[in-house]
Each structure stands twice: as structure tokens, then as C-alpha cells.
Write a protein that binds this DNA or RNA. Structure first.
Lengths: 344, 344
DNA sequence: GATCGGTTTGCAATCGATTGCAAGAAATAA
DNA sequence: TTATTTCTTGCAATCGATTGCAAACCGATC
């Protein structure tokens, strides 16, 4: 008994012998196949626990052509260092992990720097995973389009209004940009900086919302206030410093493309003793855990990543079942905190 | 030609036929086996690219009994919500991803909540991964010990001074606690709070450093100043508020167990208009990206996670090669910023 | 032209679980 | 008792790549 437990490499055949059944019965019993009598199933499953037997995943995957693994690819923006350190991205990964596990899938983590260029080939054809979840559209969507065109099941976190043949899950970016800007305008801001690169799909939508908000308020839009920077706090910090050096404090509000960007801006302003929100109001994006901890706490647009993760998994599974899929736009929410003046 | 490319499911046999060689030659050529003539290898590899052929990982794993996958388990502290959102943990994951990829391994992400209780069995025996990297010792090390006792290759991120049969990689926690505390004492602090639960291995070491620093400075240690809280900013926030309500501002320094904890404390203090560092100095731990962005920027103990990740992978690979392994203590570094008074 | 040494290639068994099909057991009907 | 139906179970082929061993090949030497 004991020695058997120690013997790690129980094979299904050996285990079936122990249980006194054939391999087919053993296999079916372990998979709770109703073809097998309930009492037999119970007995076999109990024995499996006792002997620490578990199915060889490699063999099973070879035979069934299913891996129950989903590859999650962090599609970082190429040259920049938005990097794997971005708390928001990692939060998404954490939520995906939870959502996938809930559906019985495992999560294989990759980023766009490693792996090959041919995602479909590397992950799917070679049977490493059953589907792809790509976090971020990057600046170009070439690789994504290429993968999708091979018919590989995939879902993207990005801007859901993009017109694509694959489903995209994301927040309502235009509304987010709109709400953020409107909130600042309501608080009395006249000249609002937009910190983020509109060349990127999601950012472009937010920028559209930013412009819309100006129009609706009959304010004209100064293109010089749109700063196309990388999505990092450092870029924001540098940008604000540079801007003030060049033009003085020629703004009274900031719409930042992420909380990290907002924090970088905040730091630059504080160092110059600019009052927040007295002199400049700031709105971030994402609502990462730290937004609330800042001083002043950061007004921001919250994205519901847990729900997003569920939706992504849902859309992916739909593809496995050959059901129709569609992009999903998630509601966003303005979280008012202390970094912005309240409407008067 | 074109139709062939579209036909996704090329098998090695079919591919070999295309290339005009046997499966064995094809297989060897793809693996750069020197048995095969160089020109043949080149030809086969070129063809593989052209036809988008890649080996079926499931079949390969079944045959070779190697997966080239490492399972990374976030060993969260059970009841609390240190959660997958902790930036430090996720930073470690990001670094591990990089270090593993560099050595040709893929990263399967799990956390202690999912999966089964029997890690060795679930991941290794069932051939899902070749080894385990466990991030965090949790509050009990039962599962780890159980897994290690089966002889499974594993490495732990935790307190390397723990006496174990498996290698642990981690920072010099005692020195970290010591340096943090000494720094505060040098800055004139008299009553220093310790925010973190000494019941946890790493924390216990840091606490030992904290005590040592007091002794070396001939200061006595007030046990009432040690606050055994969860590793979350929220717990810290609550704790500080409670403490001040009960005892007033009966401290002038804080050693926090993580930057997140420090930030929670910081928030509570700022809300009460306590001057940082004028009234209270704070030192965090980890040096997450946000430490620098805080206002005041956070003095903290930096852990070199990138190096740690490399060391962990190294120790794991050593086990694959049946070489001796050992725990690794990494240097830590005090990063002086603005949340603490400088030595006078 | 036969033989030898060395290089290059191919045959066929193997890894372990799954599953279509068919046989065996049990239960019911005639 | 035998025929028929309904449950259960088992046989054996299959998934696709790898690799020990042996065969084929090449040029050179005797």
C-alpha cells in the first residue's frame, strides 16, 4: 500500500488493474461518464484519491486534442516600457486567472516580446492552448489580425468599437473620456490637458470623448493641449515638467489615460507646489488600488476588470462551441475623489 | 502551395513527406540534432517555416516526458485579501515570466485558491509542468513541504533563512528590517511602529531586525508598538486610525512590511494632517513603482525581483540536472526618499 | 572490386489516455 | 426455459512525435 503510494508513476493501466476494472472503465469513471454505473464511478474515484492517481495530461491532450489551457498574451506596446509592471495590466491578468479557473481552464502567461510572431501557430496549432486572450491592442493589430484570420479562437481586451472580425471586450472609452472631461468642465476647468497618445485605439476613443465634451460645452479645443505620450508615469512626469517650463501653468485640468500617467503628472505638479485640485484638477483612468491611496485621492474612471475577464472567457468559450460572438462594451464609472474640484 | 498553408493540421509524417525525408530525420532536423547533415537541417527548418509547421506539443510531451512548462503558484495568505492585486507579487510574476522565457520555459499561472491541494500530483505527476515556483510561504508551509517531500523540483520565494529541504530565494529580511529601523532611529525616531504580522516567516525576520536595531541603539522595545496586521493597505489604514484614536499620536516612526501597507498608513496620517516626515517618518518595503510617485515619495527597502527571478529559475534548473541546490539570500537596499527624516 | 570507417537516414516501438464498437451480464418477457 | 431488451464493461485502434538500433550510403583504401 505505502510503497504503491510512493511509486509516483502510476499509469492508467496500472491503476485500472488495482481497481479491478479495465482502462476504459477507469477512464470513463474518472470523467464521470454516465455510461459507468454510479457505484463503480464512486469506487474508482475514491481509489484515485487514495493512490494519488491523476491522469497524464500530455497523453490526454494528445488523444482528445484539447488542452484546457488558454494563453494570455500581454500585448505590450512595442518600444515603450508600459511593461509588465503596469498594475492595471496585471490586475487584468489576476482577474482572468480567476475567471478561467472558474471554467476549468488554466492560464499560460506570455507577452508579445517572447513567443514567436505567429501566435496561432505557436499556441494553437502546436497544441499548447485552446484559445488566446490578448490583453491590449498594441499600436498595431497586425499580429492579432493574422492570428484571427487563421480561425483561431481568440478574444481581445481593447477598444470594442473597433471594427473587427474577432470579439473585443473593453470599456466604453468614448464615454469614459467624455465623463472625465465633462466632470472637469463642470468643476470650472477651462484649459484641459489630454495626457495620452490618440494613435492608440482605446486612447483615440477617449480623446474623441474629450473633444465631444468640449463641443457640448461650447469650448474650443486647443490641439496644443493634447500630449501624445507613452503610457507610463515617467513619460507623464517628464511631459508635465517640460510643458510648464515651456508655457508656464497654462492649464487647469488634466485628463490622463491611466492612473499611472495621472500619478506621474501629480508628482510633477506637487513638486512645483501646484495646488491639487485648487490650481489643477486631475482625472485618471482605470481605478487601480492606489488611486484611492494617493493624496489627494485620485478621481478616476473605473473599469470593471473582473466583469471584463468573465466576458472575455465567455466569448472565448462561445467560439469553442461554434456559437456567434460579439464585442462587449462595458460600462465605466466616474469615481469622484479629491483630485478634482466638485461641480459648483 | 497556398492550400497547403491553409491546411492547419500538418502532422510530422505529412510534413516529412513534403520535405522528402523520413519522420525521424524531420524530427531530428527540427531539433537541430547533429546526427543530421547540416544542409538537411537547414532545408527542413526552412520548409517548416514556409509551411507553418510546428510540432504538436502534446505528442512531444507525452513521448519525452518533459513539458518545458513551469507552474508559478501565488501562495496567497489564506483568509486575507493580499490578493492577486498586490503590485509586488505581480511584479515578481512578470520578472519570472521573463526569466523563464529566457531559458525556454513557459509559465503556467495558478494561485493557492484554485488547483488542488496536492500540488505535486496536480502539476507534476500529471505532466502539466516540470517544476514549481511558489511565490510566498503563506502562513503555513504545509503544502510546500508536502510537495517537496515527493521529490518534485521546486523553488520558493520567501525567507531564505528558513531551514528547509528545498531552496528558498528571498531578500535578507532581517537586514531589511534592521536597516529600515536604524534609518528611522538615526533620523531621531523614538517610538517606532512595526506594521506587519511577525507570525509570517519573512515578517518575523524583519521584526527580528527591528528588535535588533533597537537593542543596538540601547532603546527598549515596546511590544504594544508591534501591530500584527494583514498585508493590505486597508488593514494598515484601519490600524493606524484605530491606534491614534486609542492612544493618540504615540509614535514618530513606522516600519511597514510592504509599500502597500506603508501607503495605507500614509493615507491615514495625511487625513489627520500629521506631518510626514516632520511628525512621523515612514519606511516601506519592496520599492514598487509607486513608492517613488507618492508625495512625499516613500523611503523603502528595495528588493531586486528581477535578480530573484533569475536565481529561482537557476535553482530550479539545477534540480532538473540533479545538481545540488541551496537557498539564496539577496541583498536589499535602503532607498532614501522623502517620507523619512534624514540622519542628523 | 571488395572491404572498411564513418556519416546519414529510416524502421518501428513507445509514451498513456480516450472512445467506437461489440461482447457480456442482468433483467424482463414470452 | 429461451428470447429479447437494457445496462455495463472491455477490446483494440488511435492521437503525433521521439529515438535505439540497424540499414544504406559515400568515398577511400587495399
Amino acid at each position: 500500500m505505502y510503497t504503491l503510494k510512493k511509486n509516483q508513476k502510476l499509469t492508467l493501466a496500472q491503476f485500472a488493474a488495482l481497481a479491478g476494472v479495465s482502462t476504459s472503465t477507469a477512464s470513463r469513471a474518472l470523467n464521470d461518464n454516465p455510461l459507468i454505473k454510479q457505484t463503480t464511478r464512486d469506487k474508482v474515484q475514491a481509489l484515485a484519491k487514495e493512490y494519488d492517481y491523476s491522469v497524464n495530461a500530455a497523453a490526454s491532450r494528445l488523444r482528445t486534442q484539447k488542452t484546457n489551457v488558454i494563453a494570455v498574451i500581454l500585448n505590450l506596446i512595442d518600444n515603450t516600457e508600459q511593461s509588465v509592471a503596469d498594475p492595471f495590466l496585471l490586475k487584468v491578468v489576476g482577474d482572468l486567472n480567476k475567471a478561467l479557473n472558474a471554467k476549468g481552464y488554466e492560464l499560460l502567461l506570455s507577452n508579445s516580446f517572447m513567443a514567436t510572431d505567429n501566435w496561432a501557430n505557436y499556441f494553437i496549432t502546436s497544441k499548447r492552448a485552446d484559445g488566446l486572450i490578448i490583453v491590449g491592442q498594441g499600436k498595431s493589430t497586425e499580429k492579432i489580425t493574422a492570428a484571427a484570420s487563421t480561425g483561431v479562437p481568440l478574444v481581445v481586451w481593447g477598444d470594442p468599437t473597433s471594427d473587427t472580425h474577432y470579439p473585443i471586450v473593453g470599456g466604453n472609452n468614448r464615454l469614459g473620456g467624455y465623463k472625465a472631461t465633462t466632470h472637469l468642465i463642470a468643476g470650472g476647468c477651462q484649459r484641459i490637458l489630454f495626457l495620452g497618445d490618440p494613435g492608440h485605439a482605446e486612447m483615440s476613443e477617449r480623446h474623441a470623448g474629450y473633444k465631444q465634451a468640449h463641443q457640448d460645452a461650447n469650448m474650443n479645443i486647443d490641439p496644443a493641449l493634447t500630449m501624445p505620450i507613452d503610457i507610463t508615469s515617467k513619460a507623464a512626469y517628464t511631459c508635465i515638467n517640460q510643458f510648464i517650463r515651456d508655457h508656464g501653468l497654462a492649464f487647469d485640468g488634466i485628463v490622463a489615460i491611466s492612473d499611472m500617467v495621472a500619478l506621474g503628472a501629480l508628482k510633477a505638479l506637487k513638486e512645483r507646489y501646484v495646488g491639487i485640485p485648487a490650481d489643477v484638477s486631475i482625472v485618471g483612468y482605470d481605478d487601480i488600488a492606489l488611486a484611492e491611496l494617493m493624496h489627494p485621492s485620485l478621481t478616476t474612471i473605473r473599469q470593471n476588470t473582473a466583469l471584463a475577464a468573465e466576458k472575455m472567457v465567455e466569448q472565448l468559450i462561445a467560439q469553442f462551441n461554434h456559437q456567434a460572438t460579439h464585442s462587449v462594451v462595458l460600462d465605466i464609472e466616474l469615481i469622484e475623489r479629491r483630485s478634482s474640484r466638485t461641480s459648483t
